[in-house]
Amino acid sequence: MLSILALLSIGVPILLSLENNATKQSVWDSFMMSTSFVFFLNTIFAVVIAAESVAGEFSWGTIKLLLIRPWSRSKILASKYIATLLFSILSTVLLAALSFFTSLLIYSTDTIPSMVPPGIGAGKYVFLSLVCSYVDLFITVAIAFMLSTVFRSGGLSIGLSLFIMFTKGIFTMIFNPEKYTWANYLLFNHMDLSRYLVTNQGPGGATIGFSISILAVYYLILMAVTWVVFKKRDVAA
């Protein structure tokens, strides 16, 4: 998985350079395009790992041997979750570093980047965009991890999480916070924080503080459900 991400992170800036007059384009534009593209795959891989980490043990039957180690269920689940997060951090750092250095080799550092809004440093902007993408991934992974624990089916939780990942834009359109006040409290409308990089106004006039609070509350609920279900579950067959 990591090698696929690495290949793409190197490959995308190179492929883009074949299209354009590379030396005239900005490093930052190439970096933005490459990371936003490869990040989809990054999220999918993280979701697959999150979904399989618990559900896989159930479907292989190895959960029984795992749970009779001298560790509480909370600790076992925590180690699964931390391992998933470590993978996602590693893969994100890898894709960012490779995209950056490949772009640096090919593109110009002097050109003014067209994808970065004025009034903000290019480096700071792309870094914050990446952080926003990671927040999105982080929440999607929490959803996948919860579904994996609750349904004990890797396929179902991968499917549902990816469905949410790709359709949250449509959800925002259907349950538009401009139209319905309660839609302000929907998770989907707040998962993309990157809009706050260019404006102070989020969906339905929300502030960044509000969006972060909503994300935090949902995250805590997801984790609580995951932990309670895993701790209480009777493991049979």
Partner: peptide, 20 residues
Amino acid sequence: EFEQAIAQVGAIVENPEMYK
């Protein structure tokens, strides 16, 4: 005291499932 109790037990419950 699950951790202390289970530390003294080795078990196979039903089929011996391992990572294939």
